[in-house]
Nucleic acid binder design. Structure first.
Lengths: 196, 196, 196, 196
DNA sequence: CATGAATGAGTATTCATTCAT
DNA sequence: CATGAATGAATACTCATTCAT
C-alpha cells in the first residue's frame, strides 16, 4: 500500500470513529457534518471525498461495527473449548452480550440497526459459508437448512431485543440476573426445534 | 361536546393521521412541520396550538397507536373463549400479529418505537393493574411477580423482534410459515419458566 | 387589496428591483441570494417565499422588463399620429431604441434574453389579439397571416441584434448615425415583402 | 512534432471537445472543471496545465469554433463560381446556415457568444485584410469603407439573429421556408445601400 | 381560534485551486 | 508532465418558530 493509500485509510477511520462518537453522544440528527469534520481534524470538503452524506456514513458505520462485534465473538470467545454444541452457542452469545455491556455506546448505536440482514452480510463477508459455523455449533442436532435458518434467526432476535433494554436500563432486571432466564429460554427453543 | 370542541378534535385527529402517514413513508427526520400542516390542510401556526413540536406529536402518536393495537387484541381476539391460559396468550399474540400483517405502515412505525417501556405505559393507562390481565391469562402457572415480569418481557420481545422482519420482508420465511415455529418457541419458554 | 396583499406586492417589487440592479452590475453568476435579500432589506428565507431560486427570479425579471418596454412604446410613442403605417412602425421602433439608449443597463440585461418567444408572450399578455396591432400599423400592405408573422419577426430581430452593439459600444457607428441606415433597411424589407 | 508534443495537443483537443459538449448541454455556469476533467479522462490538475480557468477555455472555444465555421464557408461553399457578387454573398451565408442547421449544438453555442467583435477577430486572424474579401464579393457596388462596414454588419446581424430561432425551434417557420424571405430581405438591404 | 408571511440561525454542499507525490 | 487528495471559502437552501392580522 502506498503512502497515499495508507493516509486515506487513516482519514476514513478517523472520520468514522469521530462520527461514531458524535452519533452516540448527541444522536445522528443533531450531529452536523461540520462537527464531524472539525472534530476529525479535516476540512469539510474532505468529508465528501469519503461519504455521500451523513446517512451514507451511518450505514457504513453500522456494517463495520456489526462485523467487529461478531468477529470478536467468533475469534475471542473460545467457544471451541466447549464440549457440547449448545455450550458453544451460549458462549458466543455471552461474549457478544458482555461486549455490549462493557460498551453501552456501541449497544445503543447498534441496537435499532442490527438486523438479520446485516448479520447475514457481516457473517457472509467474514465467512462465505456461514451455515457451516452454525452447523459446527449446533452440529449434533439434525436439522434441515430451512429450519436451521429459522432457529438461528429466532434465537438471534430474542437475544438482541431482550438484552437491549436489560443492559441499557437494567429493566426489568439487570443483565446478570437476566442471563440465566435467557439461557433457559434459548435451551428451551433449541429443544423445541430438535424435537421436531 | 360542543361544535367547537368537536372541530378541534377533528383537526387533532387529522394532524396525527397525516403525521403518521408522513413519518412512516419518509421518516421523522425528513418530515417537516410545514409538510404535516399543509398535507393536513391547516396553517402552520395551527400545528402549535396542538403540539409543542414534531417530537411531541410523535410521542403522542406512538402511545395512541400502541393503545389501539393492544386494545383491539384484548377486546376483539376472543381470547376468553380459549380454555387454557397458553391458548389465551397465543390468541392475543396472533391477533396483534395479524393486525400488523394487515397494516404494514403501522408495523414499520411501531417497530422502532414500541419498547417495553412504552408498552408498560400503554397498558398502564388502559388498565392500571396490568399484571392482573397476565395473571388471568397465565394464572394457572404459579410464579412470583418478578419472574412473571421477566417471562412476559421475554415473550413480548421475542414476538416483536422476530415478526418485524418476517412480516415486512418475508425473511427468512413468511408469517404463516413462521407462526408454528414461534408458537412452539413460546410454549417452550413458558414451560421452562413454569419448571423453575 | 388587503394590507397584507399590498405588502407582499411591495416586497416582490423590491426584490426584483434589487436583483435587477445587482444582475446588471455584477452579473447573475456573481450575485448571491444573500446579496439580493440583504440589499432588499429582507431575510434570506423571505426570498424563497417569492422565488424558487436565482434563475426563477431572473426569468420573471426578463418577462416583466420586456413587457414594460413594449408597453411604453405602444402607449407613449404617439405612433397613432403618424399618417402612414411604416411611419407608425418606425416610431414604435425608435421609441424602444431610445428607451434602451437611455437605459443601457436595461439593454444589456434584455439583450441576450429578449427573444421572439418572450415578445410574443409579452404582447399576448398586453393585447391578446396582437396581429391586430401590426395589421393596424402595416394595414395597407395586403399580406397573409404567415408572411406577416415572418415580416414582423425579421424586422424585430434585425432591430434587436443590430442595435445592441451599436447602442452599447457605438460599434461600428453610434446610434444616431446608424438609425438612418436601419430605417432604410427596414423600409427595404417592407417593400420586398409587399412586392410579393 | 515530437510524440510528447502530439500527446499534449491530443489532450488539449480532448478537453476542448468535452467542454464544448458540456457547455452546450448544461450551460457554462453549471459545468464544473471537475466535470470537464473527468469526462475528458484527465486529472483535475491537468486542466490547469492548459487553461487558466473555465472562462479561458470558453473564450478559446468560441474563437476556434467561429474560425472553423467561417473557414469552411470561405473554402468549401464554392462561392467563387457564382457570377455576380450578391450570389457570392448568399452562397457563403447559406453555407454557414447549413452548417448550423446540421450541428445545432454548434448553433446554440455560437449564438450567445458569436458577436460582431468576435467575428472581426476571427476573420482578422484568418485574413488580416478582411475588407478585401467583402470587397471582392460586393466589389461591383461602389461604397465607401464606412458604409461597407455598416452594410456587412447589418446583414450579419440580420442573418445571425433571425436564423437562430428558426433553426433551433422552427419558429415562426422552418429554415427552408424562411430562406427565400431572408434572401429577399438581404437583397433589399443591399439595394438600399447601393442606391445611396 | 386560525392564519400564513416573515424570520434568520443553522446546515449541507459545491468547486476552483493548490501541491506533495 | 501528470495526478488527485485535500482544502475551505462561498453559497444555496431549510425549517422551526413567532406574531400581526
Amino acid at each position: 500500500m502506498g503512502r497515499v493509500e495508507e493516509n486515506k485509510k487513516l482519514k476514513l477511520t478517523c472520520l468514522m470513529d469521530t462520527a461514531f462518537q458524535l452519533f452516540t453522544t448527541q444522536g445522528i440528527a443533531k450531529t452536523s457534518i461540520a462537527d464531524i469534520a472539525q472534530q476529525a481534524g479535516v476540512a469539510k470538503g474532505t468529508f465528501y471525498l469519503y461519504f455521500k452524506d451523513k446517512y451514507d456514513l451511518h450505514e457504513k458505520l453500522v456494517i463495520r461495527k456489526s462485523e467487529q462485534l461478531f468477529q470478536h465473538a467468533l475469534e475471542q470467545s473460545g467457544y471451541q473449548d466447549q464440549p457440547d454444541p449448545t455450550g458453544k452457542l451460549l458462549t458466543i452469545i455471552d461474549d457478544v452480550l458482555y461486549q455490549l455491556r462493557d460498551n453501552k455506546l456501541l449497544l445503543q448505536f447498534i441496537n435499532k440497526n442490527l438486523s438479520w440482514g446485516i448479520f447475514r452480510r457481516a457473517i457472509g463477508k467474514w465467512e462465505p459459508d456461514y451455515p457451516a459455523i452454525f452447523e459446527e455449533i449446533l452440529g449434533s442436532i439434525p436439522s434441515d437448512r430451512k429450519s436451521l435458518a429459522i432457529e438461528v434467526y429466532t434465537i438471534l432476535e430474542l437475544v438482541g431485543s431482550t438484552c437491549y433494554t436489560v443492559i441499557l436500563n437494567g429493566d426489568p432486571v439487570d443483565l446478570d440476573t437476566y442471563l440465566p432466564y435467557l439461557h433457559r429460554s434459548i435451551l428451551a427453543i433449541l429443544d423445541s426445534f430438535s424435537a421436531t
